[in-house]
Amino acid sequence: MGIENLLKSNILVTTVDAVVNWGRKYSLWPMPMGTACCAIELMSTLASRYDMGRFGAERLSFSPRQADLMIVAGRVSIKMMPVVIRIWEEIPEPKWCIAMGACASSGGVFDTYTLVQGIDQFIPVDVYIPGCPPRPEGVLDALVKIQKLVEQDSIKKRK
């Protein structure tokens, strides 16, 4: 009874990256940074009709320490931006960020003294969702794009 026979029928050979990323991409825990009306669309995306749970991301993490995806949904003022940066830094690596809607991506219609003109000036954004607010399909599309980014992640790349 050689071990070779068992290997043939029960063991698959793969890389750690592939397994880890496969698990990670179907169990993203988003941190909702909902500051405005986009957060309402985000709630709709999570609810039964669009059901973000189908993509494995239904468990919102209201603590940044357990999250791995931040969704900035809504306009961010200059008084709020330091808080957003702090929360972003509290999320452990690896982490991804979605700028949801026109305001988070570029300031949107609020080209005024009080609004940050795009959060990407201060935190790295992986996927931008256009729209004011974006439809839930847009959020799901961004989530799939984040999953593709997660696939490309590698333990070797990180220090």
Partner: peptide, 21 residues
């Protein structure tokens, strides 16, 4: 900022502000 002679786009507030560390 709601005084009518205050510039709409501000005086650089949205670029320069304290960052919490």
């Amino acid at each position: 900022p709601l005084r009518k002679d205050y510039p709409l786009k501000g005086r650089g507030e949205r670029e320069n502000f304290k960052v919490v560390k």
